[in-house]
């Protein structure tokens, strides 16, 4: 199981940057490598892990969470600056969440910038009742 995962990760890293003929060449070499090592039977499992990696990467966008549709354009520039600074290769995805009341949240898997009205209101409330 662990071996299949490692193979999948290696193949994914190589094919992510490659295109067209180069991708085909990498894949052929990969199959030959598996056959030479006697690991060809792991192919179904390797593809299963590869599929998971591709799906995970798709989810790994920059989420720009806003309270309503109009706010997306209003705060897009901030998200764009964030993207240029931290994650130049990722895409910005629009998420509408009315519970944040207003403002915006920029969220990735590892970083979050929360400038929502919801957070400000809750912090204000907590400061008042202290």
């Amino acid at each position: 199981m662990q071996v299949a995962k490692i193979y999948a990760k290696a193949l994914y890293d190589l094919t992510k940057k490659a295109r067209g003929e180069k991708q085909e060449k990498i894949f052929n070499n990969f199959v030959n490598l598996l056959k030479s090592k006697g690991h060809y039977s792991l192919m179904p499992l390797i593809f299963k892990h590869l599929k998971l990696l591709v799906e995970k990467d798709k989810l790994d966008n920059i989420d720009l969470i806003v309270a309503k549709e109009n706010d997306f354009e209003k705060y897009f520039k901030k998200a764009d600056n964030f993207k240029k600074h931290f994650y130049p290769k990722k895409e910005i995805k629009k998420v509408i969440d009315s519970s944040i009341v207003g403002g915006f949240i920029i969220k990735t898997k590892e970083l979050m910038v929360d400038k929502s009205y919801k957070r400000s209101l809750i912090n204000l409330y907590n400061n008042i009742i202290k």
């Binding site: 964030f82 931290f86 969220k107 898997k109 590892e110 970083l111 979050m112 910038v113 929360d114 400038k115 957070r119 400000s120 912090n123 204000l124 400061n127 008042i128």
Partner: peptide, 29 residues
């Protein structure tokens, strides 16, 4: 409180919960 209120803008380090079981959770990030 409203007059003095000045929320800081910081990028917080976060992760995403990918698995929860038996009181332990796995977090990516």
């Amino acid at each position: 409180e409203i007059e003095n209120f000045s929320p800081k803008t910081e990028a917080e380090k976060t992760g995403v919960v990918v698995k929860v079981a038996d009181g332990i959770c796995e977090v990516e990030g």
